[in-house]
């Protein structure tokens, strides 16, 4: 997995059926990339739902978040609508898992992304990364600590 200090690899992925986003769109902002195994996790307080509650706290640190999985854009749309998500899920769908592989968080055996977090600073450098066991929701404390130290360094 890519570590702190590495230049974050660029990507261009669908964030909606008719809209794609790339890393450069977030230049000048902090960006959280949350790679996760699959849409439709059955637990009610799943990781994406948790981050959905935290957007305004992320915004305090001038940060946006993208969820990344290998699910297709229409799948993301349905999942996002069902969970009432207010941030984008992007589809690492074609070629499958390409971006996850670039970030070193692709599970070949299962054909899906690992559960992994990256905080990328305003210049596009990875400021923090974390690989979580697939079954464990990593929460947001690591993300907040990373964002806080970025903000402090810039102050």
């Amino acid at each position: 997995m890519l570590e702190k200090g590495t230049k974050a690899p660029d990507f261009k992925l669908f964030a909606a059926p008719d809209k794609s986003v790339s890393l450069t769109d977030f230049k000048g902002k902090n960006l959280i990339l949350a790679f996760y195994p699959a849409d439709w996790s059955p637990v009610c307080s799943d990781q994406m739902a948790l981050y959905n509650e935290m957007l305004k706290y992320f915004a305090k640190y001038d940060a946006e978040i993208l969820g990344v999985s290998v699910d297709g854009k229409w799948c993301h749309k349905a999942f996002s609508e069902s969970r009432n998500l207010h941030f984008s899920l992007v589809a690492d769908f074609e070629p499958k898992g390409e971006v996850s592989k670039k970030y070193g968080v692709y599970n070949e055996e299962e054909g899906r992304s690992d559960r992994a977090l990256f905080v990328i600073d305003k210049e596009g450098t990875i400021a923090w990364s974390y690989l979580s066991p697939a079954a464990v929701n990593p929460g947001a404390d690591g993300i907040l600590d990373a964002l806080e130290s970025l903000t402090r360094n810039n102050a």
């Binding site: 799943d46 990781q47 948790l50 706290y57 464990v136 990593p138 929460g139 947001a140 404390d141």
Partner: peptide, 10 residues
């Protein structure tokens, strides 16, 4: 916010 800080994930 204290929950976020403390690693509450659900």
């Amino acid at each position: 916010e204290s929950g976020m800080r403390s690693g509450v994930s659900g």
